[in-house]
């Protein structure tokens, strides 16, 4: 990295700063987090929807994957439901290297499915 010229670095910096600002447009909208736990469980367990079970152990879920952490004691791990919701909306904000898809930001879930799954995961 020391070999990179100052000009290149400057160009790269401007370029990357513009990239950094881009995600702001995909911030989680102001939606009421009042979903339905049972509907959220369906979203979490269904392959074409949230498919949380593909990567996370979930109490009561069959054949979980082992890529992400177990979804247990969620209310001790997130300061609020909104904080958890932000993580599910776009986990790359906290950790750019995370594998988990940005379920809200990329429109993988509808807003209703999103608030439902947040409600369910918050209940675990």
């Amino acid at each position: 990295m020391l070999l990179v010229s100052p000009q290149l670095r400057g160009v790269a910096a401007v370029f990357s700063l513009s990239l950094l600002m881009a995600p702001a447009v995909a911030d989680m909208p102001d939606i009421a987090l009042n979903g339905n736990v049972d509907a959220g469980k369906e979203v979490a367990m269904t392959r074409a929807k949230g498919n949380c079970i593909a990567c996370h152990l979930i109490p009561g879920g069959d054949s979980p994957g082992a890529i992400g952490p177990a979804l247990i004691a969620m209310q001790t791990r997130y300061s609020s439901k909104a904080d958890l919701a932000k993580q599910i909306w776009d986990p790359t904000v906290k950790n750019p290297d995370v594998v988990m898809p940005p379920f809200g930001k990329h429109g993988i879930l509808s807003n209703q499915e999103f608030v439902d799954v947040v409600e369910y995961v918050w209940s675990l």
Binding site: M1, L3, V4, L8, R9, G10, A12, A13, V14, F15, S16, L17, L20
Partner: peptide, 15 residues
């Protein structure tokens, strides 16, 4: 500082 740091990261593939 942030710009320089990110600049280094982004520029890394060049070398």
């Amino acid at each position: 500082i942030t710009a320089l740091g990110i600049g280094c990261l982004v520029a890394a593939p060049l070398i």
